[in-house]
Design a protein around this nucleic acid. Sequence first.
RNA 1: GCCGCGGUGGCGGAAUCGGCUUACGCGUGCGACUCAAAAUCGCAUGGUCUCACGACCGUGUGGGUUCAAGUCCCACCCGCGGCACCA
Length: 877
Amino acid sequence: MKYDHAKIEKKWQKEWTKHPELCAADDKSDKPKQYILDMFPYPSGDGLHIGHVEGYTASDIMSRYARLCGKNVLHPQGWDAFGLPAENFAIKTKVHPAATTKKAIATFKKQMNMLGFSYDWSREVNSSDPEYYKWTQWFFLLLYKNGLAYKKKGKVNWCDNCQTVLANEQAEGGVCDRCSNEVVQKDLEQWYFSITKFIEPSEARSSERQRRCGDAKDGRITSGLLEGLEKLDWPDSTKAAQKNWIGKSEGAQFRLPVILSPKGEESKRSFAGAQDDNLFLEVFTTRLDTVFGMSFALIAPEHELVQKLKSQISNWSEVEKYIALAKKKTDLQRQTEAKEKTGVELEGVKVKNPFTKQAIPLFASDFVLAHYGTGAVMAVPAHDERDFEFAKKFKLPINFVILNEAKRNEESKNRSFAGAQDDEAFVEDGILTNSGEYDGLTSEKAREKIAKWLEKEGIGKKVINYKLRDWLVSRQRYWGAPIPIIYCDKCGEIPVPEEDLPVRLPDDVDFMPTGESPLAKSKKFQDVKCPECGGPARREADTMDTFVCSSWYYLRYSDNKNDKEFASKEMLKKWLPVDLYIGGAEHVVLHLLYARFFTKVLHKLGYINFDEPFLKLRHQGIILAEDGTKMSKSKGNVVNPDDVVKEYGADALRMFEMFMGPLEDMKPWNTKGIVGIVRFLERVWNLYHKADLTDCGEGCKDVPEGMPQLLHKTIKKVTEDIENLRFNTAISQMMIFINFIIRFNVMPRGAAQAFLILLAPFAPHMAEELWSSFAPASAKASAGKNASEDKSEEKDSESIFKQSWPKFNPAMVKDETIQMPVQINGKVRAILTVPADISEDEAKKLSMSDINIIKWLEGKEPKKVIFVKGKLVNIVV
RNA sequence: GCCGCGGUGGCGGAAUCGGCUUACGCGUGCGACUCAAAAUCGCAUGGUCUCACGACCGUGUGGGUUCAAGUCCCACCCGCGGCACCA
């Protein structure tokens, strides 16, 4: 019989849909749970691509394996349906995004079934479904009520051509991705979530929390986003990227008094101004040890102090011009034009270095970021590259105050080293000099001491700064979850009462871009009665960032039909946290950080008893096109899974993607390579159809020598490799087994069954088909509806996915004899076949009497003979 | 620039604790089967030198540790990914 993949795949897919219990997560079972999750896809019109298949196959293997091992597995799938791509597509085609999304979901689902993924579809979620976004809105209110959602003016990307706000991802390179128009920065009032409050651990103490989380002890700590990373089994690169993104830096903040010159006296040389005790410049630094080298200060052009000092600045028109220029630049432009430093001195004003007591000039410069630290910095050109560059350009003094320790040791003997002649900044730690009482201290010690001094004087303190900023969640877009806030002229900003959720997204709104939030154009949507006073009010017209929807979807799968809570406490406790999460690395600092933030909020507020959502995370690597470049529609090098399945079958595609290399590696597609897997599957097929399945046991003389050992080795290797997600080597071990056994025409039935179970997670259709034809004769005979039959036999006649994962016998995986290399000076000169447990004396004796070894030794006496048990002998001459 | 990951045949990749480099697969060559081809099966397949036996070299480069290094240490080169004027 020929292997007809199309026929058997179709057959079993149909059969499996009749038995949803094969994939179902059981809420009532007390078997150990395993939550294996894929990142839910955005259902695009293009359908599933080869990269999805990689990650989903990996998680499917893990899920099927876990079920075979007797675990109660939750393996759900859903749709990240809201978002800009769907809306942009709708704008282009003028078809409502709800319609295109619905169609795309149908396609995705069909493709997933075509690939044999064992999802529990009864738990499907769709973020654009009101039953779902009702809870997205509920989360918004939860954050709002706990002071974690707030409105504030902020800079956003704006495209004048499309008349709309763009997400950062939509404005890459400073250009609108829809029309290639230049993006400008606009100040708009926006909603934010206080993610920065969760960077460091926080204590949960509310009695509210105690009430909700029955088993929680008061005062329990919710780990922070930063240190919470440490206990997670995540890729190092991902942890590093999040750490980097959060960007913690420890330093100090202190005040530089502002000195005003008497009007009309602007001579730069003799500056004898008056100090105004109420005016000061606050700066942040991580290099407090360098303060004695501060020879000027820098301030962001947007800084409010600049405006405050307006009347004192004698070159105001020049300064004003510079500010206007800086404002026009977007952040992106600032970056790309970073090569040359620009700036303007605020003439007529100076600041005082509180350490040297000197008056030093103050410059506005756009390389100082208004939103980081205090928006102003002390400049120490001798020990900071940027300050150095700036000082060179503006001919400002460069005072070295840190000695290069290493260099000093080198040069100390004859010269007194005073680094001032260096023509570049020395940015490392060293020993202080020209720093008054701090001379001779190491940088580290000096920072401590100087910080103490600042505190004593009351002009500064130690401070920690982070790069992470609060999460801007409002979008002036249509296709998203409406923000559940109402504005009343009398009562102000009012949250929508919980019982009024969901705030439904109207489906009759003109979503073509005009510059307004599309929802603002719908009177029907906007006009509402104030929930407080009943007076006229209007709804918030912005929708939420789609990343809000995806920050909690993994919780919903545990209890997706609950209309009283986002999920019941009981189900959350049963299924969460996620044991294994597989998905692309592109959302490392967005989705994966936001989801952690949500989890921490819920933990702190007492809704859940865990504070990290994803215990183990793995990324699937990108699959490149055959030419080693990225697959892209425009290049026409995209591999379509439908075509591959049609030609080679779903089992072949699944296995090939797993065989190509380590899951996390980036690897090129190779259409020729898939035939290797096809050949393997055909060989398995033919073997089961041709070979004698003997019912005699492993010790039986019909069984080829070495076969039982190889079977047990294979069970061991495949089991361990699956557990480590090393599917490529698991498959190669299965190949080794088949390559061996195919030379004989005999296989014990037990081995034949065990192998099929090993194969089942990888090639479920073929395994199921072969299982149904080659289950034991006894089981087949009893496959009727006889309820009184022996249970184990009855089980054999059922789906292969109801069987148990085979166990290996440790005694069987040990080799009795080994090929032991004998080396002379580390070079292999002979290979001896010896018992695996050969003794040192025996091994040495055997080695020394080997003809090749005798030849190579040429009669020389060995200096030393190394013996590694079970490994080798090395003779040193 | 900083952080993270990597560099092994013609190609994708294997290689517990340092212990036979190149498992498995693709490709290629030769052979069997065939009128022939495809498919299938068998054998071979790192490089150099050699008629050959065989020898020497070989995991990005240069050093080092070790009886023994793809693996450990130092310095460097290259590639990929993330962050980036973050004070």
